[in-house]
Design a protein around this nucleic acid. Structure first.
Lengths: 160, 160
DNA sequence: CCTGAAAACAGACCCCC
DNA sequence: GGGGGTCTGTTTTCAGG
């Protein structure tokens, strides 16, 4: 299921990331090709899952989601069963926007978007009542300096 | 420039986040309205900046961006000039996908996407040569458990 | 593999309710 | 402010070079 992604594909992906609302014609012009070939490539990239969801970026603050926390989690449990419960809980909660398992001292990091600190506390209480966690540190964002959905496709190497 | 966002607007925003490629008709049907009113609302939300960029979510791993780091930064500098330099550096680097200024012990957190650990080191070296930083901890992601661009609009309160 | 045309389709804007 | 229709441009498909 691995697809070869060449430089033309990367140009198309860059253009789509930037603005997916433009017409095929515009994108074709920007990447220096023409409608049909670009369309064929987009279709292939979609089928391969390299192009995923098409979405719009919304203004979280304007929608009342004014608090953003990064949550550092240490656990003493490392059994498969515990992990399954934990992961399921994270995936089920929409306020968890990112969750990563880490190498090193800290086991997990979450990014959590909520209306306010009270809502974060409710989330936190619910989480620790569902799964045993050894240690939690919450980092409160004071200012979103940067947040981009654009992957750095500038000169990243493609998989061989 | 603050716009009142009512429940119908929220429904539309939820639908657009989920899949921005659907037609106006489909979205209108989903939210229980019709083409024109939905279109008018979308236009207003766009003009108000609540709806931002339209984009596609790409598969980072498939595109050779196999490493993701969360970087915790402490600094001793808190003058405006230093901060300006630092923020400009972060915004200029495409591998920095998120940057937040934090409350508490740790001053900043970054999310950095790169092809591999070597590329991260190159980024790190470049950054510390541009600005003085007191202490840096890099957390390496072993597994992306969850990553969603969808804001939790379920029952978030709107701004009064 | 690209070009160009043809068909189905959706977005933008209208007037009427 | 919502409903429906129309015109224009875009997506998608297909035949041919």
């Amino acid at each position: 299921m691995t697809v070869q992604v060449d430089e033309m594909d990367r140009k198309i992906l860059r253009a789509l990331q930037e603005d997916a609302s433009r017409s095929l014609d515009e994108i074709a012009r920007e990447v220096g090709s023409s409608k049909t070939p670009v369309w064929t490539r987009i279709r292939k990239l979609r089928e391969a899952g390299i192009i995923g969801r098409q979405t719009v970026i919304l203004d979280a603050e304007a929608l009342g989601l004014e608090a953003c926390f990064f949550v550092l989690i240490r656990t003493s449990e490392h059994e498969a069963e515990w992990q399954q419960t934990f992961l399921a809980a994270l995936r089920a909660r929409p306020e968890v926007m990112e969750a990563h398992r880490l190498a090193g001292e800290i086991d997990y990091i979450l990014k959590v978007r909520v209306p306010n600190a009270r809502a974060y506390d409710a989330f936190y209480q619910a989480l620790i009542s569902e799964v045993r966690i050894y240690n939690v540190t919450a980092l409160l964002s004071m200012e979103e300096i940067k947040s981009t959905p654009l992957l750095p496709l500038g000169q990243a190497p493609s998989k061989s």
